[in-house]
Design a binder for these strands. Structure first.
Lengths: 343, 343
DNA sequence: ATCTATAATGCACACGTGTGCATAGGAGAA
DNA sequence: TTCTCCTATGCACACGTGTGCATTATAGAT
């Protein structure tokens, strides 16, 4: 049984109220007593019960984090950023994976509400509206990261995917490509729409056509799925000479599939990824991609969350805050001028 | 302010004790009343306060998980397994990353003790002894996963790295290799020792020598570090024809570095990884590796933990339980007969 | 009809912490 | 010395839930 402030009180021959105040550094208690109590607490190895404190103060010193998959390297890096900031500020993290499963979403929300988390950071790209609405009803601050429906929330942080996609597409156009295709992930909602929008926007600016069958969406972004998806483009009578992929995971699968079919990257076709996950630098050829500041995004999300939960008592909290972060183009070896230019 | 059992009591015109009992399904309360109360609770959207319950019952329905890095794909998969089982059993997860930093370890333990977690799963390969001892003193069940000092704990789950390394090495020997080297990660303690031991054991069985400079250890397992490490072996007067890497991450770096230096894999040198992380299948050539059942390990760890925390009241808990899981060899394209055999 | 046994419910306290209020002790002023 | 005021501490209750015990209501036995 862990020791309590009452144990300290007995040992230090004071009342438990005095102990409580002394440990919180109240000015009501004399310096001498405070010091004595702190030493006693240290000696006994006291650690306060979060449950009791939470019960009394309505603050759990914990925030919930919801991701779709823990093992998606993109989210992993964001998590790392969140964890870093949370830990530095003595906040604990409840972590849960939704797997895009409705029942799990319900269970996660229940669990987090039960634990009375001070706030929730949703990193799941497609957390269902219904669930999030339930959450807002519960009056808990929510920060969403790269969510499909960023506008539905008051606090949101996301990467400027339109800008990124524009830069990537422009890069390909500048290399001389005219037939560029886009491979999307229909599961990721807004994210893929933004990236597609950037792609379209830049193509239009350059006066380049985007045939319908040059835009292909698949439900997921596992490398395995990228492998199959590439067949769609290869089957077209008029091949694209460059392919912008929704993210690196897909691009990595695309790369493998192309190579196993004897198609040479970048000589025969250029491939671009998105996100700059660690492994995008270790494919052969290394992937041209758009470097999204994932860890930084996580940090910003956590900082925003902390400002929300702290300010409930102190300073005023902004009514709404939407932060858009920018990344930068990373040209590696999977993109090159189109083969037709060699003629 | 969330509603409490008192609110339900008022609404249902009973005492809060009756509500408490009814919601827990006590046989003391009549079927009719129970049903009525459950309906009222549902109607009001009641969710119990974990804090209050925890305070009263000394069970937090939460377990802590400590990893070194969240963004290590190997641990990510284990986490996924843990999360899956925990969620299915209505346990929440406190997650924290130690970053192999002593101060953080201390902070994490404090935080988890404060929250009175029912148990802790340590996935950090090198969680310091001092810290873990502190934990045991706190009388919380600890399950370690692939820990460097598995024997120091009563409950441990780990993969049979010796066996895996043996199989990998034997595979290389059977291909005809005689000059095989090992690249380790000195940070990972026991894990690298086991893998080295398996390597040595199999080499000895085959009567093959292992020169001192054929075993090289570096402090870490980022691909980046693998890139540098390979120079050590290339600088040797008598090159190895095959290299067993501590894990896939290192192997992936090694692969890239070799290729950028014009060394052909597997024609000039065979490379083997370990763990079978997702991306090991997407390098070029895809990596021969040892498939460790990562998700399964996570599940087993979580199940063991749950059996420990549940059995405190019910059945007897085993004094000690060490579970060793086996993986299987995965031959892909990064290993082939040595060049000398071609003659 | 009276007594007894059982079922169903309420009362009151506990868990560990925080806090408003009352109180004791001491210092300073008259 | 006596009164006043401030400082330092203790008392008691509260947070939401669970549970031993007392209490009431009901049914069955005599």
């Amino acid at each position: 049984m862990p020791i309590t402030i009452k144990d300290i009180a007995k040992e230090a021959a004071v009342s438990h109220s005095t102990v409580s105040r002394a440990l919180r550094g109240s000015s009501l208690i004399s310096e001498k007593t405070t010091k004595h109590i702190q030493e006693t607490a240290m000696k006994l190895g006291y650690l306060p019960s979060a449950a009791a404190r939470s019960l009394k103060t309505n603050r759990s010193q914990a925030v919930g984090v919801i991701v779709s998959n823990i093992d998606d390297p993109y989210f992993s890096e964001i998590l790392q950023g969140i964890e870093e900031v949370a830990q530095r500020n003595n906040y604990s993290l409840f972590m849960a994976a939704s797997q895009r499963d409705h029942e799990r979403e319900v269970a996660i929300i229940q669990s987090m509400r039960q634990h009375r988390v001070d706030g929730v950071i949703i990193c799941s790209t497609a957390f269902s509206d219904e669930q999030s609405r339930r959450f807002s009803k519960y009056e808990v601050p929510i920060v969403v990261v790269n969510n499909q429906a960023a506008e539905d929330y008051r606090y949101s942080i996301y990467h400027d995917d339109v800008d990124g996609s524009c830069q990537l597409t422009r890069h390909l156009i500048e290399l001389g490509h005219r037939k560029i295709a886009y491979l999307g992930n229909s599961n990721s909602g807004r994210t893929t729409l933004d990236r597609l929008a950037g792609f379209r926007q830049e193509m239009q600016s350059a006066g380049l056509p985007v045939p319908d069958n040059y835009v292909h969406e698949i439900p997921g972004s596992e490398p395995e799925q990228g492998m199959h998806a590439v067949d769609h483009f290869l089957a077209l009578p008029d091949h694209p000479t460059a392919l912008v992929c929704f993210n690196d995971m897909l691009a990595i699968g695309v790369l493998k599939s192309l190579q196993s079919q004897g198609v040479c990257v970048p000589d025969d076709i250029s491939i671009a990824g998105f996100d700059n996950i660690v492994f995008s630098n270790y494919t052969n050829p290394p992937l041209t991609t758009f470097d999204q500041p994932k860890r930084f995004i996580g940090q910003k999300a956590a900082e925003l969350m902390l400002s929300l939960v702290d300010s409930t008592s102190k300073t005023s909290v902004p009514e709404q805050k939407i932060q858009v972060l920018k990344g930068k183009l990373l040209v590696r070896k999977s993109t090159a001028p189109p083969p037709s230019n060699i003629l």
